[in-house]
């Protein structure tokens, strides 16, 4: 049985006097215990909103969340604020994009780590401090007992991200959501943080949802990859299948735009034409159609349904390589 079952999750932002906007438009996916699942896409495709919706951290006004998010059989979207707060940090952890602004600048790191342990495991201050030191040590922060007393501005970006990972994993959550955890860091630090994450997740059996725009990150760690476009999943496949044979033109475009070491010098990168701003609403066709090199008439006439091709899910009228599989997947 899956640890997390997301079914038909939609997040609609509505402001007074404005058209409602669906940032996430009927997303379904599963995460099994210990599995690493990637959510990939460019800015504005709904990655972060999906993660905030799962955590119940979206603002309460002006947002409509639909569908179900079942965690161990319990729908997180139906829990009360109090029940949800009890689960956050204990069962569900999250690591954010920007380690510089995601720590409280006015209290020492140690207090922030201890706070989680005191909150969820009822530890006394002294025990919590000991455990915090162990945790900092575990995430590779040298001299942890000294660092515990330091304020965030005394730590480097990489250190702070390590501290944040320590906080998120303090109570051994069964699901960790990492929302672009390396975007704000140096490339050298990125690799360290990623290997730390995958090592910790493997050791503790925690399931991981990795949210990123960086296919390199996904290639390194995820078992299964969901490619998002305009708030919908357009392709889902195992890591190897996806990279070996991208079927959706958007996935293919993302892969083609990565610079290659073995490409001849002077070769230009291959971008995806246009920007997210060119999207058409899914109701009238495929949101990606205006930017798609493979677009056919059908793409602007009717919205493509999710189709199954072996283990792969695909939402495209005219995929790369072979023609679209005929078997339609009923919305799970």
């Amino acid at each position: 049985m899956a640890l997390l079952e997301v079914r038909d999750l939609s997040v609609v932002f509505q402001r007074k006097g404005e058209e409602p906007f669906a940032a996430v438009d009927g997303i379904s996916f599963d995460v099994s215990p210990g599995q690493m699942v990637g959510l990939v896409g460019e800015s504005g495709c709904g990655k972060s909103v999906t993660s905030l919706a799962i955590m119940g951290l979206l603002p309460q006004r002006g947002v409509r969340v639909e569908g179900t998010v079942e965690f161990e059989g319990k729908d997180l979207l139906r829990l009360s604020d109090r029940e949800l707060a009890d689960r956050r940090g204990r069962d569900l952890g999250m690591v954010f994009q920007d380690p510089l602004s995601s720590v409280n600048p006015v209290i020492p790191i140690g207090v922030q780590v201890s706070e989680v342990l005191e909150r969820h495991e009822g530890l006394r201050r002294r025990e919590a401090a000991l455990r915090s030191a162990e945790l900092l040590d575990r995430v590779g922060i040298p001299d942890p007992s000294r660092r515990l007393k330091e304020y965030p501005h005394q730590l480097s970006g990489g250190m702070r991200q390590r501290a944040l990972i320590a906080m998120a994993l303090a109570c051994k959550p069964r699901l960790l959501i990492a929302d672009e955890p390396t975007t704000a860091l140096d490339v050298t630090i990125q690799a360290q943080i990623l290997s730390l994450l995958s090592e910790l997740v493997r050791d503790t059996g925690t399931a991981l949802i990795m949210i990123t725009h960086d296919l390199g990150v996904v290639a390194g760690m995820c078992d299964e990859v969901n490619v998002l476009y305009g708030g919908r999943i357009v392709e889902r496949a195992g890591r190897h299948e996806l990279f070996a044979e991208p079927r959706h033109p958007y996935t293919a475009g993302l892969l083609a735009s990565i610079p290659r070491l073995d490409a001849p010098r002077g070769d230009r990168l291959t971008p995806i034409r246009g920007s997210v701003a060119d999207n058409i609403p899914w109701a009238g066709g495929c949101a990606f159609a205006p930017r798609c090199p493979n677009a056919v008439d059908a793409c602007v006439e009717r919205s493509p349904e999710m189709t199954r091709d072996g283990e792969r899910l695909l939402r495209c009228h005219n995929p790369v390589g072979r023609p679209a599989p005929s078997e339609e997947v009923p919305v799970q």
Binding site: A85, R87, R88, G89, M94, F96, S101, S102, V103, V116
Partner: peptide
């Protein structure tokens, strides 16, 4: 961001406000 991060850790409302 840091208040969002604190909420993601399940920190109590009282502590979020005063700490």
């Amino acid at each position: 961001d840091h208040v969002l991060a604190a909420r993601s850790l399940g920190v109590r409302q009282r502590s979020i406000v005063f700490r």
